[in-house]
Structure formats: structure tokens, C-alpha cells
Design a protein around this nucleic acid. Structure first.
Lengths: 148, 148
DNA sequence: ATAATCTTGACAATTTTACTCGGGTATGCT
DNA sequence: AGCATACCCGAGTAAAATTGTCAAGATTAT
């Protein structure tokens, strides 16, 4: 059930954008260095995030990336799903296009996979980038002295 | 976040044992055919389950496998973990031996991964094979006419 | 113009998955 | 005893996924 680096790096990059980004775009290089992710690889991931409408790009010199919406309007669920596809533990309980099987017994295990999927959905769809920023602020104390 | 066939086949095989098994052992062949799993492959999986103490084996002619405990005492969590290892979405929040990272920011995403892991844990540790049998009985109606 | 940056697509190493195969060992039945 | 039926064990392997790298081009601030 491990998340691949796609989902993990993607969330880290988006969190970086939420924490350090603002009016002016952040370059890929900045994010990649701060989050210790290979720049060409992050390039791929952020291209996916852009197509999913989660970040906006600004081309040319001093360009970079911006969050497409406010941090409280971006759930980690939308980030993870855009990069990993469905988070369902089995194909037959995928959110979008479940490929059902015919066997009666399979349906019993199907109930199980669905319970797991719903439980994961509930968590990742209820947590936004703003929630993560709040967690971070709390972790660092009121003066935020450990901000990077 | 998809479960591999190990976990899925393992749960199916254990459910088969819970549903059809009794005093006399079920042969691997029987389970493999009924659940449509390659027999030599299931052999590997059930060997792991045996080492984890979830099933007992009876060697020789008319031998096979039995659940080591009653269905209400076997959680799907124990089955999945024995076959897949930790179900944590990231290594740093593994139940057993979390490999922590040093970076402050990582710890924010770590909080997220931990919330996901705990949510999955809660589901799979609360569901037993008996629960699945109950689901099955309910699905088939009181006369259980669709039992295989 | 030039440098910084995004954009795209192809390619490649490594790891994991999902098996197969071949030979053992134990046990009940005749 | 001998045979059939099973479990037991370790090695090997093809395909897929993961985790990237690389090169060439497009766009824009200065």
C-alpha cells in the first residue's frame, strides 16, 4: 500500500508552493533543491499537476509555478489522485471506472476493498494544503523561527 | 495505493478457508481452483501465512490447510501485513521500524502519511474473517442458496 | 540579444510483481 | 511395501512499474 514517489514528491512540491509561494512564481529549481527532488523528474510531475489544473505556470525568465487556487481549496486527495490515479486497493472498487468481476465470492472481498478505499478517501479529501500549513505553524511555534 | 495480488489472493484464500473449511483440511488445489489462483503461486503465499501462524498444514495424502484460529480471531489486517509487509504509505510511518528523515518539512508530510496509515489500520484491524462471512451470508439471503 | 525558465518527448536503469519450475518430504490407503 | 496425494522449498524469469535522465525547443524579462 505504499505511495510511490510520484504522490509523495507531488504533495511535497505542492506544500512547498503553498508555504513559500505567493504572488511571484517559484522556479522548479528552487522547489527541487529545497525538497531534495531531482529537477528533471519533478518537471514530469508538475507537468501532470498543471494539466490537472492544480498549478499555473509562468513561462520565460523569472517564471515558475503558482498554486492555481488558494491552499484551503486544494486537497491532498486531488494532488495524489492526479499523480497516482485511483487510490483504490483493487481495480474493482476504483472511484472512476471500476472493472467489476462476475464471481459472487469476489464481491465479499470487494466490500472489504471498498471499506478501505472509502476510509482513505475520507482522510485525503478532508485535508487541504492550508491544514498542512497550520500543522507546520503549530510545529514551529508562534514565532515560526524554523521556517525555511 | 493498490494492494498487490499477494494481499488480495491471500485474503481470498483465507476467506475460502473460513467459508468452506472445517474439521478436515482443504487442499491447495481446491482453494486455488475455486478462487481462480495459480496453484504454485498460492503455494508461496500460503507458506507465508503458515509461517505467520495464520494457517496450519496437514501433510500427506488427504492433507491440506486449516485456519489456525477461529474466523472471528483472524483480522484481515494480520493477513495483509503478513503478505505485504507494512501498509504504511511511506517508510517513515511504518508501524514496525519507521525510518525517519531529518528534514523539518518532511515531518509535515509525515503527519499526513501517518493519518492515512492510521485510517487504513483502523479498518483492516477491525474486520475479521467472521465479519466477511456475515457479509456473505447477508448477501446470499437466509437460505444461503448461493453458497459455493 | 541573452539568459532564465518552462515544455515535450524519448530513452534507460533498477526494482517489483507475478508468476513458473524442479525437485524434495510426509502420509494415508491398498 | 508401494503408490498416490499432498505439502515444502529454493531458484529462476518475463513483464510491468518505478524512478528517473537527457536533449532539443519555446517563451519571456531584462
Amino acid at each position: 500500500m505504499r505511495l510511490s514517489t510520484k504522490g509523495r514528491y507531488g504533495v511535497k512540491a505542492m506544500f512547498d508552493l503553498a508555504l513559500h509561494g505567493g504572488e511571484t512564481p517559484l522556479s522548479l529549481k528552487t522547489i527541487a533543491e529545497r525538497q531534495e527532488i531531482s529537477e528533471p523528474y519533478l518537471e514530469q510531475l508538475i507537468a501532470t499537476l498543471r494539466k490537472a489544473g492544480l498549478v499555473k505556470s509562468v513561462r520565460g525568465a523569472y517564471g515558475g509555478y503558482l498554486l492555481a487556487r488558494h491552499p484551503e481549496q486544494i486537497t491532498v486527495g486531488s494532488i495524489i489522485r492526479s499523480l497516482e490515479g485511483s487510490i483504490a486497493p483493487a481495480e474493482c472498487v476504483s472511484e472512476m471506472d471500476p472493472i467489476e468481476c462476475e464471481r459472487a465470492e469476489n464481491c465479499v472481498t470487494r466490500i472489504l476493498w471498498e471499506k478501505i478505499r472509502i476510509s482513505i478517501d475520507n482522510v485525503i479529501d478532508s485535508i487541504t494544503l492550508q491544514d498542512m500549513i497550520n500543522d507546520y505553524d503549530e510545529m514551529c511555534g508562534q514565532d515560526n523561527m524554523y521556517y525555511i
